[in-house]
Amino acid sequence: MERLTRRALARAALAAGLGLAACGGGPAPGTSGRGPAAASRIASQTLLSDEILWDLGPDTRARVVAVSALADDPRYSDRPHTWPDTVPRVPTGSEALLALAPDLVVVATFTAPEIRERLAHVGVAQLVLPPLTSTDAYRNAVHRIAEGVGAAAAGDDLVAAFDRALAEHTRRPPPGRRRTLVAYADGVVAGADTTFDEIARHAGFDNAAARAGVTGHARVDPERLLAWDPFVVVIPCGGDCGRAKAAFAATPGLSALSAVREGRVVPIEDTTLHATGWGLARLAARLCDEFDRFAAADGEGAP
């Protein structure tokens, strides 16, 4: 019974898709370089693919029929209100998504398996993004999406631009002179195998959590943070950087950290701190600013 219903739904969705495609008039002229199998109705279901699809240029943007429901949420989206209001924001795996009759849906490994199974069942092609734990994961995601939508050249350009932006914000302190740093959010630190760890090293810092053996984002006892006593502590702003800084300093025990006592607690906007895409370049720039600030302070303080 359920199977029958689902099949009927799938047929209806496909029929609707065909009809809409016919109305749309097929591929627009002047889109050379796109393969014959290139998707014409792309639905994005992750924040990162929302961003990448936009960055791939006007030709790709025109083929996007849906972006993720969180696309405009300033707490999570790096670029709220980028997409015109005519592109609907649809919840993951919703009926609204099927009604738009996409021929390619960008999801991620963290998308619920039953949703991916349902999409597969109605015959919609899926592009699955891997876990976003490094800049390579971002580059990889750009290439795969670009190829999937038939815009490989635009993808190469985007990655090249990202690499240039990242290269501008690199610091190479002398060996053994790296400052330690920890990103701490409500008891959770970013350890090895995180984008933060990579960018922190890129900006000339040494992630104390990764060095202590923490992998991924993990909860740690405040005592361990005290034992590491990092030179810099990075915290998320949560909308109000001043308040976040005060709240961190007021956390029992943490006021003894040298970073608190000597004013090296660095609040960073959540969307920058947790960026998985282009925002990583911005995070690198932000951390490099801090690096330069402390280096300058060192220079002044030196005898």
Binding site: P222, E223, A227, D229, P252, G253, L254, S255, A256, L257
Partner: peptide, 14 residues
């Protein structure tokens, strides 16, 4: 040292 004091007096005792 301040860190030991924080661990004992601000974390463990409360």
């Amino acid at each position: 040292p301040p860190l030991a004091r924080a661990v004992v007096w601000d974390l463990r005792i409360p």
